[in-house]
Amino acid sequence: MKNLKNLIGMGLMTLAFTTTYGCETKIKKETKTLIAHAVTADDSEPKNNTVKIALLLDTSNSMDGLINQAKAQLWDIVNKFTHAKCGNEERPALQIALYQYGNDNLSSREGYVQQVLGFSDDLDEISEKLFSLTTNGGEEFCGEVIQTSLKQLDWGKNEDHLKMIFIAGNEPFDQGKLNYQDAVTNAKEKDVVVNTIFCGNYEQGINTYWKNGARLTGGEYIAIDHNREIVHIDTPYDEIIIKLNSKLNKTYISYGALGASKMESQRIQDSNAMEMEEAVAVKRAVSKSSTLYKNSKWDLVDAVEDEMVEVSDIPKEDLPSELRGKSNTEIENYIDTKKAERKRIQKEIQEANKKREAYIAKNQKEGSTGELENAMLNAIKKQAEKKNYTWD
């Protein structure tokens, strides 16, 4: 139940399409100053070297194992992706979108398809939406969900960006009124690669067109046992990382209309990860120590560092209670203190994680990482080379 995290990771890292383009070698940096309460998701423009992944999950009755894998393995995928680099040594930005299909609770008029989340780089939000998914029988129309994601999402026209769809399910790929071949042809025209994950027998997936759906865009076809549980290895460093995560949370300074609710969301997603398994909580903590975990929309430390706000422009009512009576200089000093503290804690988490990974490598049995994880990472490495990405 813990492999789909690599699904997203594969998505994250399947950094390639069959084109001659590569990641951009020149970074165009642009800064902007915004009033705290005016910052929204629409204010941020896509960065150079952006990877866009749309994850399309079958949420019919038989897919509980798949959904659990997605919840558990999100952080593995993110952590793998933190090691990706372009030729200019810049880390690519990551955006993930989420769709569900094949669920009776969804509208039949919409083809039993629903956008759960548009492209987002908010890791807490992505986790929250994954944990909101529930299963209920239904009609699984692969062509419909692919076409819907192509129409609704802003894929952009930058040919250097890596754009991928990962669709997972277990019913024939050709079901529904919309021909899947038309949908994947549209994907290819948009420079979007379609990767298919069949939850069942490899040959059965081929016979029901899952392999063909991937082949038409140069994507990867993968068959997995979605109900297989992955055994995580407990290490002496797990408790250390979890304690450091608690300290890390205390370095966040909420501000603006989103502040309180987003800080609560951070806590809830920590809890969701811990309820699945301690190892999942550890991996989430490692993700939070990376550059991919940014919260400029609600955290003053990230917002100031990213030049999203000026302290002097923030209305006093948008500040947390402990800062409302402070001068601008006092607030800036407080932010600097929290920033230094955060960097120290993140470094400690990274150092502990290196020891954790070495311990796991020494004690892990061959093949225990799971079918999905192995298949996806192999696909990622192969496709990444086509976009000139490298890994630390």
Results as ranks from 00 to 15, higher is better:
residue 317 E to P: 02
residue 1 M to N: 09
residue 262 K to W: 01
residue 337 T to V: 13
residue 128 E to M: 08
residue 264 E to V: 14
residue 252 Y to K: 10
residue 40 T to R: 10
residue 90 E to Q: 15
residue 365 K to N: 08
residue 45 E to K: 13
residue 326 K to L: 02
residue 221 Y to C: 00
residue 13 M to Q: 07
residue 368 S to L: 07
residue 143 G to S: 06
residue 89 E to N: 14
residue 155 W to V: 01
residue 210 W to V: 03
residue 24 E to G: 04
residue 299 D to N: 14
residue 309 V to W: 08
residue 179 N to G: 03
residue 222 I to H: 01
residue 357 E to T: 15
residue 377 L to N: 11
residue 290 S to Y: 04
residue 78 V to H: 07
residue 42 D to S: 14
residue 312 S to G: 06
residue 192 V to C: 05
residue 224 I to C: 05
residue 69 Q to K: 03
residue 118 G to P: 05
residue 167 I to N: 00
residue 193 V to S: 04
residue 30 E to P: 01
residue 291 T to H: 15
residue 298 W to I: 00
residue 298 W to F: 09
residue 117 L to I: 11
residue 313 D to A: 13
residue 362 K to R: 12
residue 221 Y to E: 13
residue 176 G to Q: 09
residue 222 I to Y: 12
residue 327 S to N: 07
residue 129 K to N: 01
residue 22 G to M: 06
residue 136 N to D: 15
residue 168 A to S: 12
residue 73 Q to G: 14
residue 241 I to G: 05
residue 371 E to V: 01
residue 3 N to R: 12
residue 62 S to T: 12
residue 257 A to R: 14
residue 281 A to Y: 08
residue 158 N to Y: 13
residue 211 K to G: 05
residue 157 K to I: 13
residue 142 C to A: 12
residue 240 I to R: 09
residue 309 V to L: 03
residue 357 E to Y: 10
residue 309 V to P: 04
residue 91 R to E: 08
residue 95 Q to K: 14
residue 162 L to W: 11
residue 361 A to V: 07
residue 43 D to L: 14
residue 217 T to C: 09
residue 315 P to Q: 08
residue 352 A to C: 03
residue 162 L to Q: 13
residue 123 L to G: 00
residue 223 A to E: 00
residue 12 L to T: 02
residue 355 K to T: 09
residue 379 A to Q: 07
residue 391 W to P: 06
residue 3 N to D: 04
residue 181 Q to S: 15
residue 256 G to K: 06
residue 260 A to V: 14
residue 50 T to G: 02
residue 305 E to R: 10
residue 216 L to F: 06
residue 342 R to M: 07
residue 263 M to K: 15
residue 369 T to Q: 11
residue 329 T to G: 10
residue 47 K to D: 08
residue 151 K to P: 03
residue 51 V to W: 02
residue 349 I to R: 02
residue 158 N to T: 02
residue 322 E to V: 14
residue 275 E to Q: 13
residue 169 G to S: 11
residue 185 T to L: 09
residue 336 D to L: 08
residue 279 A to F: 03
residue 215 R to K: 14
residue 101 Y to F: 15
residue 383 Q to N: 15
residue 107 S to I: 05
residue 126 I to T: 03
residue 330 E to P: 01
residue 267 R to E: 14
residue 254 S to P: 09
residue 72 A to F: 01
residue 334 Y to L: 00
residue 25 T to M: 07
residue 39 V to I: 15
residue 119 F to W: 05
residue 58 D to T: 01
residue 232 H to A: 10
residue 314 I to G: 01
residue 212 N to A: 10
residue 389 Y to V: 11
residue 77 I to P: 00
residue 175 Q to H: 12
residue 118 G to C: 06
residue 153 L to H: 02
residue 233 I to N: 05
residue 119 F to D: 07
residue 250 K to H: 09
residue 233 I to Q: 08
residue 303 A to K: 02
residue 81 F to I: 04
residue 50 T to R: 06
residue 19 T to N: 07
residue 41 A to R: 06
residue 196 T to S: 11
residue 116 V to M: 12
